[in-house]
Simulated assay, not measured.
Amino acid sequence: MSTGFKVVIPARYGSTRLPGKPLLDIAGKPMIVHVCERALEADAEQVVVATDDQRIFAAVGDLGLQAVMTDPNHQSGTERIAEVARIMGWADEQIVVNLQGDEPLIPPGYIRDAALALAGQDQAGIATLAAKILDVEEIFNPNAVKVVLDKNGYALYFSRAAIPWNRSTFPDQHDIASSSLPHLRHIGMYAYTVGFLQRYCSWSVSQLEGVESLEQLRILWHGEPVLVRIVDKTPEAGVDTEEDLNRVSRRLLSGWPTKS
């Protein structure tokens, strides 16, 4: 599989808590521009913003970056990326990384890690990331998605529950430091082949996906493998609220390292 990869950044204008989020100013630039810069720093061969809003399309184009207008009726960013791949005429074996448009602090190395992990094997059409959980409260937090792997690094299951469940120490004792089997938090970045993307978008929502509200369970439901690369730590949170916006602005203005 080729090691060259492209990055597509889904970006919608609508947001319940932060309307127009992709265009909000962070340290003198629209947020979507910071995200594009992370992708370029990862050495992506092409970076495309996938949007359904003319304001985002125009702003990205004015800054010399590439954007594609997509169907406003898509139910997920994955569907939006699949449309970009069709518009661009990318080959089935082309690797595409899905980078969320509200992640201006994502380490560029993580983008590259996901793409290279997928390129380095031939069993899965999708790769994602995970990091070891160091805070015991995180294990029991349903907003932190956990993943359990097989011996070869492919996902056995994703869940909002505390998996794997340590029968000896849970729920009253939480000695994760001495656990022989680390708990892993899933990091929601994906690298896909275009062929996999098209298959995925043809599948209906699975029962597991509906119960856990985790889109990635659709893949396991249909019997396809998901490769998981373990990275050093969970990246800093993205931008969902005004508080997040202020936090990220402070980090970037303080000289947050954007090379990794």
Rank of each mutant, 00 (worst) to 15 (best):
residue 195 G to N: 04
residue 43 D to C: 14
residue 255 G to Q: 07
residue 213 S to D: 12
residue 29 K to E: 15
residue 127 A to H: 04
residue 115 A to I: 04
residue 115 A to C: 06
residue 28 G to K: 10
residue 2 S to W: 06
residue 77 G to S: 09
residue 102 D to V: 02
residue 98 N to R: 11
residue 114 A to S: 12
residue 199 R to C: 06
residue 246 N to K: 13
residue 75 Q to C: 03
residue 21 K to S: 05
residue 59 A to Y: 03
residue 81 I to E: 04
residue 54 Q to I: 12
residue 74 H to N: 12
residue 215 E to M: 14
residue 208 L to Q: 13
residue 18 L to H: 08
residue 221 W to R: 10
residue 75 Q to W: 03
residue 139 I to A: 03
residue 128 T to E: 02
residue 76 S to F: 06
residue 153 G to L: 07
residue 190 Y to S: 07
residue 179 S to E: 14
residue 157 Y to K: 13
residue 231 V to R: 07
residue 50 A to R: 00
residue 52 D to H: 07
residue 256 W to P: 03
residue 256 W to S: 09
residue 241 T to I: 04
residue 104 P to G: 08
residue 120 G to Y: 05
residue 93 E to L: 04
residue 204 S to A: 13
residue 101 G to M: 02
residue 185 R to S: 14
residue 206 S to V: 03
residue 147 V to Y: 02
residue 186 H to T: 03
residue 67 A to K: 00
residue 164 P to D: 08
residue 106 I to L: 12
residue 228 V to S: 03
residue 234 T to W: 08
residue 109 G to F: 05
residue 257 P to Q: 13
residue 133 I to V: 15
residue 193 T to P: 02
residue 245 L to G: 04
residue 45 E to I: 12
residue 255 G to L: 07
residue 16 T to P: 08
residue 250 R to D: 13
residue 24 L to D: 07
residue 118 L to Q: 02
residue 108 P to I: 02
residue 239 V to W: 00
residue 89 G to E: 07
residue 174 H to T: 11
residue 219 I to D: 05
residue 255 G to V: 05
residue 222 H to D: 12
residue 172 D to P: 01
residue 94 Q to F: 02
residue 119 A to Q: 06
residue 210 G to C: 06
residue 116 L to R: 12
residue 108 P to E: 03
residue 85 A to L: 06
residue 77 G to Q: 05
residue 184 L to F: 09
residue 65 L to H: 13
residue 156 L to F: 10
residue 102 D to H: 07
residue 174 H to C: 11
residue 241 T to N: 08
residue 259 K to R: 15
residue 207 Q to G: 07
residue 202 S to P: 01
residue 73 N to E: 13
residue 130 A to G: 12
residue 106 I to H: 00
residue 98 N to P: 01
residue 94 Q to M: 10
residue 98 N to A: 09
residue 240 D to H: 13
residue 249 S to Y: 01
residue 113 D to W: 03
residue 27 A to E: 06
residue 172 D to G: 09
residue 235 P to T: 07
residue 18 L to P: 00
residue 51 T to C: 05
residue 216 Q to S: 15
residue 162 A to L: 06
residue 74 H to S: 08
residue 134 L to F: 12
residue 250 R to E: 13
residue 29 K to F: 10
residue 2 S to I: 09
residue 242 E to H: 10
residue 13 Y to N: 08
residue 251 R to L: 12
residue 205 V to E: 15
residue 148 V to Q: 15
residue 34 H to S: 09
residue 98 N to K: 11
residue 243 E to S: 11
residue 43 D to H: 14
residue 151 K to R: 14
residue 232 D to W: 08
residue 20 G to Y: 05
residue 211 V to M: 10
residue 177 A to Y: 12
residue 216 Q to L: 11
residue 154 Y to F: 15
residue 212 E to V: 01
residue 131 A to I: 08
residue 72 P to F: 05
residue 51 T to V: 05
residue 32 I to S: 03
residue 138 E to H: 14
residue 91 A to H: 13
residue 203 W to K: 09
residue 4 G to M: 12
residue 187 I to E: 00
residue 152 N to R: 14
residue 198 Q to W: 11
residue 185 R to M: 09
residue 2 S to Q: 13
residue 141 N to C: 11
residue 26 I to K: 02
residue 61 G to M: 06
residue 203 W to H: 10
residue 162 A to T: 05
residue 77 G to P: 00
